[in-house]
Simulated assay, not measured.
Amino acid sequence: MSNIYPRARTLTKKNDPLHIIKTRKITHNRAVTIAGPMVRYSKLPFRQVCRHYNVDIVYTPMILAREFVRNCHARMADFSSNDSDTPLIVQVGVNNVTDLLRFVEMVSPYCDGIGINCGCPIKEQIREGIGSALIYNPELLSSMVSAVKAKYGDTVRLETKIRIHDDWDQTVALCNRLCDAGVDWITIHGRTRTTRSSVPVNLDAIKYITEKIQDRNVPVIANGDCFTMQDFQNILDYTGVDGVMAVRGLLDNPALFSGHDKCPWSALELFWHYAMEFGGLPHQLLLHHLHCMLESMGLEKRLHNELMEMKTTAQLIDWFDEKFVLKRLGEAGFAEATRIQYKNTSKV
């Protein structure tokens, strides 16, 4: 296990994701905000940045249960956290009850909930019966939920993140089975397994499904095409869901839920801080995060091209210090600026 695991935790009102989902409108005068799972990208440093900007609940990337429970090296690589990384949902890719129960036993003491990935459209995962394959196998999916809830009850929160079927009533039937099995909340990504991300999310489908299961007392979270706070409000108003999960929007702009229409410089300085503090991010992953944030800020193309030529993290740090005023923790003004902090007005 990672040497930055948190201490074992128990659910309280402060970190219980179900309680947070149900009460955010009362405590914060808004619906719950969630940073969804991003393959490779929602690692600990990025999760910590999101928490600075009104994100209530954060997910890990999907972890494959079979590899995790069998391989100590996979456990070291796939899951790191700390005591401030809460509320945290660990998302799992799994296709059988046995692996899921073993995974929950190993992970649940160090997080605040488990999410079963029923939405990944990657063909390799579908062939393994993982991800969006599960929405076409409702008996298996509901049996996995039932097994976890029968063993752990309310001491382990369990979510399913699904996609929609072409026939929305098929999705309604699946949600009803999940409710019967004891799922704590359901996240609906408003696209089918074959719908490209370039196609607008189907809010009509999310609204229809939400209305059909509203008497089940199981919260519904909407996922898809949330890039601004206006999107957030539009999704809530149109669908009647209990909260909104953003994924791609947060990758470009971790401050989305605090009202920033583009990534502020403060988020980039925080990301640099956490990436160096916690370590463990491969150079290409670090580079991609910075690329997404700086593209959102409007970095000029010439400098962006230079950024993408950086081959090592040390070279990247030197380049940032040459081109920008990159403040460190403890310096006056750290993580306060909004605009890009060029070293001079000519942006060189």
Rank of each mutant, 00 (worst) to 15 (best):
E139V: 12
K123F: 02
F68P: 01
H52V: 05
G115D: 15
Y136F: 14
E128T: 03
A65N: 02
I126E: 00
I130E: 02
V39G: 00
G115P: 00
A65C: 10
Q48F: 00
P37A: 15
L141E: 05
Y53P: 02
V55Q: 02
E124W: 02
T98A: 15
P109E: 09
M106W: 09
L140W: 08
T98P: 01
A35S: 14
F79S: 10
Y53L: 05
N71L: 02
D83E: 11
L88G: 11
V69Y: 07
R47K: 06
L140E: 07
Q48R: 13
T98Q: 15
Y110E: 06
I89S: 04
I57M: 12
A133G: 01
I114W: 06
F79A: 09
E124A: 06
K43M: 06
V92Y: 06
S143W: 04
L141P: 07
E67P: 00
V104R: 07
G36F: 08
E139K: 14
I122R: 03
Y59I: 04
K43A: 10
G129I: 00
L140P: 10
S142C: 14
F79H: 08
P45C: 04
H73C: 11
G93F: 09
I135W: 05
H52R: 12
R102N: 14
N71V: 06
R51A: 13
P87A: 13
Y110N: 09
D83Q: 06
E67L: 03
G36N: 08
N117P: 08
G93R: 11
V90K: 12
Q91C: 04
L101N: 12
A77V: 15
G36S: 15
N117V: 07
K123R: 12
Q48M: 15
R102Q: 15
V49G: 04
S108V: 00
P121G: 03
S42D: 10
Y59V: 02
C120K: 05
P61H: 05
G93L: 11
F103C: 10
I122M: 11
C111N: 07
P87D: 12
E128W: 02
L101R: 08
L140A: 12
A133T: 01
V69F: 06
N71R: 09
R70M: 08
N82Q: 08
L101Q: 14
G93K: 11
D85P: 00
V97F: 04
C111L: 09
Y110D: 09
I122N: 03
G93N: 07
V90I: 13
E128L: 14
D56K: 13
E139T: 12
R40N: 11
C50P: 00
K43V: 01
R70C: 07
N82T: 10
V107L: 11
N137Q: 15
D85S: 08
N82C: 15
C120P: 02
F79V: 09
G115T: 05
L134K: 04
C72D: 15
F46N: 04
R66E: 14
N71E: 04
D78I: 00
N117Q: 08
V69R: 10
I63R: 03
V107E: 04
N71F: 01
Y53V: 01
Y136K: 14
I116P: 08
I130D: 00
V92L: 06
I116E: 11
F68V: 03
N137T: 08
M144H: 06
G113N: 11
E105A: 13
H73V: 07
M144R: 08
C72Y: 13
F79L: 15
R51G: 05
N95S: 15
V104H: 07
S132T: 12
P61E: 14
G113T: 13
C111F: 05
V90Y: 12
